[in-house]
Write a protein that binds this DNA or RNA. Structure first.
Length: 263
DNA sequence: ATGGCTATCATTGATAGA
């Protein structure tokens, strides 16, 4: 049996509800990780997902951020907070992390901080958040269980992931400390599933609303599925579905997906 | 054309996104 897992920065679940539900059906997705839901938990439209056969875990806040996971299979909730570890930082009330277990796979949905403008407080927060994520990822990895970290990483890893890198050299998504931390995370033992299966494909997961970026294909690839070796062995396919970005009232991101053998 | 758009919350303007 095949398990299809997707990730989609929806940019408001309220604005995108019908788009998301239609896409879930047409793409035959079993599990979807969502980011930027932008709503408090009391207002999350979980009943609409239930009607389509999905149960949902959501971790939101007012106005900004917010993550959620909808699944046709039973969700076991593990954690909604990325630990602080020894980070000296301001209190973190931002809803950017949820860790669940579905079909014996650890699934971690993240909305990694943007970090602009850099340098500044927001960039410090981004790097500190990445340090915490690396520590968390290492802890889970060392349990030798299947792990998948998916979502909006807000990181441009290399030239192939960007329409024109010269526009991004001083951006928080591409600055050297950002890429260094991303490499550190991957070096825990994870693989970028899309890049593994498509080493030379220049495809994007985000296009700005401004400046006709979509029409000119001025995009960047910043949404990923990082998978542990147990999942790599079961990986059947990986892709990016551009179609939702071309619809009416689209998100500025488009869904990414993988197919995994369900054993 | 060195800008451009979208969403939220609170009120027509500020903030955030990437």
């Amino acid at each position: 049996m095949t398990l299809k897992i997707a990730s989609f920065n929806v940019n408001s679940i309220k604005m995108r509800l019908q788009n998301v539900l239609e896409w879930l059906e047409s793409s035959n997705t079993d599990i979807i990780l969502m980011q930027e839901t932008k709503t408090i938990d009391e207002n999350f439209p979980y009943l609409d997902f239930n009607k389509k056969g999905f149960e949902v875990t959501f971790c939101g806040q007012k106005s900004y951020n917010g993550v959620a996971i909808a699944s046709k299979f039973q969700i076991e909730e593990i954690s909604r907070h990325l630990p602080y570890y020894d980070e000296i930082t301001v209190e973190d009330n931002q809803a950017r992390f949820v860790h669940v277990k579905i079909e014996n796979i650890n699934i971690i949905c993240i909305y990694l901080p943007n970090g602009n403008p850099a340098p500044g407080d927001k960039y410090e927060y981004k790097i500190s958040w990445m340090r915490r994520l690396i520590k968390y990822a290492r802890e889970i990895y060392e349990k030798n269980e299947p792990v998948l970290i998916g979502g909006d990483f807000n990181v441009i890893q290399s030239e192939i992931d960007c329409y024109d890198l010269s526009k991004w050299t001083n951006d928080a998504l591409y600055l050297e400390p950002t890429r260094k931390k991303m490499k550190e995370l991957i070096n825990v033992g994870f693989i970028d599933s899309f890049r593994l299966l498509h080493p030379n494909l220049k495809e994007f997961s985000f296009w700005d609303y401004q400046a006709g970026a979509w029409q000119k294909d001025n995009g960047i690839r910043i949404d990923f599925f990082l998978i542990s070796p147990e999942i790599v062995d079961r990986l059947l396919n990986a892709g990016i579905d551009k179609k939702p970005r071309g619809k009416e009232k689209p998100s500025d991101h488009t869904p990414i997906w993988i197919e995994v053998e369900n054993i």
